[in-house]
Amino acid sequence: MEATSEARLVEQMPAFDIKGTITPVTVLRLYTTDVERIERELRARIAPAPQMFANAPIVIDVADLPGEVELSLPSLVARLRSCKLVPVGVANASGDEIVRAVEAGLAIVQIGIGRGRGVERPGVNARPEPAPVHVAAPAPVAAPMPVAKRAREEKRPDPKAADAEQQHTLTLTVKQPVRGGQVIYAQRADLVVLAPVNAGAQVIADGHVHVYGPLRGRALAGAQGMADARVFCQSLEAELVSVAGQYLLADEIPADRRGRPTQIFVENGSFHFLPL
């Protein structure tokens, strides 16, 4: 009796909800149609951190492809899958490409406003613009970046020197205590706090978060998805710690690390707390 009424109740509920969402997606911006070379370079690129890319959704951006040779989408899709990536769509496709993308089971994706065929690619030596480093109050818990913005920030296959240089300048240092209600966000940077982070405060970084004092508030490292970001603190008393979107609440933090110098990171999808 009860089971039937329960079943009826379930049937009265809608079968699903449709909800809009913004999810970070990795963009593969192609500069050649040589799929063999793409696969080779891609394997080399993900080898150091295979977990980071495992089953990651990938959008293929064809804006910068030279027009002469046609890209074999089915072959590329198969090769991406063999690298454990999940191709989901094609960006900046035009004409025939759209048809072929749909045939290959891929979505047509809009990214990179203003980008498209014929837009000049910055020279290899062009330095990336100095990233803005600021103290700001972003959304309470950093939301994943919209696809478009994310796409622009993907690293180009340019010399590593430029990347290294860019990363080097990026640390935001805070000397004052971070009080309840304050939010400090180190955008595209590491964050170093040389004072306590009190209950009700939030410290957020796209890179690592270091707190050389008690961490009593919330700390979010890898706010834009950097999976190997870490949180370091002198005394772990946090309300919440988060790495690349995964988070743990105070009650879930191992009791034996409470009040102790600790580093926090995520490996294979689970949190690790190690003494410093």
């Binding site: 004052q176 205590p177 971070v178 009080r179 309840g180 209600g181 304050q182 009190n198 209950a199 009700g200 405060a201």
Partner: peptide
């Protein structure tokens, strides 16, 4: 204490 902490943040900002 927590409210005072919040206020100290405002005093500095």
């Amino acid at each position: 204490v927590r409210d005072s902490d919040r206020v100290l943040g405002l005093l500095n900002a």
